[in-house]
């Protein structure tokens, strides 16, 4: 199977069924693909991302991610640890830990020895050009640097999928471009599947494929050119 994600008729409601966050989503994403999910607030794009990342369970339908049936799988935390790397809008770094320690936090759950853990974190931080900031606390970093630390943290466990929820939402346009380029660069180099939720069309266009979500359904899909021009 070439698809890393297969979703069929996925439904999710909140508030005792009164809010239909996902209303029958069908989606297939190939391994190593970059996909942007775009749509207005409340359209269900973040809910869809949370379902793929196993942060929440759907009410109905089927969802297979990296050969895992998420409707049936019991230990979702282990799945997240092994397969998913999250990048949040508000970086969500732990303020009392250094950059190096923040990047190592996912590895605490693994059985990797301390030295190996540190080596891997240093290697990832080097790839996001933060080798000189490893002992700094997040509060001393700029918004772009914090997001790069968050990306490093998402990559440290070598996930098969990176899920980025509005990764540039709190950044200025210049820094946004740097962060998106970094994510796309990592996606290509590591052949990792990248799924970004965004409400910015120019950011969405930088992915290979854009999916437009409205009222919990996929309304439109577009293939993008590497230059960001829709085809």
């Amino acid at each position: 199977m070439n698809n890393i994600i297969e979703i069929k008729n996925l439904k999710k409601t909140y508030e005792n069924g009164t809010i239909k966050a996902l209303n029958g989503i069908d989606l297939e994403i190939k391994k190593g693909e970059s996909v942007s999910i775009i749509g207005p607030s409340g359209s269900g794009k973040s809910t869809l991302l949370n379902m793929i990342g196993a942060l929440d369970r759907a009410d109905e339908g089927n969802i297979y991610v990296a050969d895992n049936d998420l409707m049936q799988k019991k230990d979702l935390s282990k799945f997240r640890l092994n397969e998913i790397g999250f990048v949040f809008q508000l970086h969500n770094l732990i303020p009392n830990l250094t950059v190096l320690e923040n990047v190592q936090t996912p590895l605490i759950e693994t059985s990797i020895p301390d030295k190996k853990m540190e080596e891997r974190a240093l290697e990832i931080l080097k790839s996001v050009n933060l080798s000189d900031k490893i002992n700094q606390k997040p509060t001393k970093l700029s918004g772009g640097e914090r997001q790069r630390v968050a990306i490093a943290r998402a990559l440290v466990n070598h996930p098969s999928i990176i899920l980025a929820d509005e990764p540039t939402g709190a950044l200025d346009s210049k820094t946004s471009e740097i962060i998106i380029k970094l994510l796309l660069d990592i996606h290509k180099k590591e052949n990792v599947t990248l799924i970004m939720v965004t409400h910015e069309q120019n950011v969405a266009n930088m992915a290979e494929r854009s999916i437009y979500v409205l009222d919990g359904k996929i309304k439109e899909e577009k293939m993008n050119t590497p230059t960001g021009i829709n085809i």
């Binding site: 990342g53 935390s77 997240r80 640890l81 790397g85 999250f86 949040f88 936090t105 996912p106 943290r153």
Partner: peptide, 16 residues
């Protein structure tokens, strides 16, 4: 709370 949510998202178990 938010930090615990992040730790859960990056793969920490309830037991951890």
């Amino acid at each position: 709370t938010r930090e615990i949510g992040v730790l859960r998202a990056i793969g920490w178990s309830q037991k951890r």
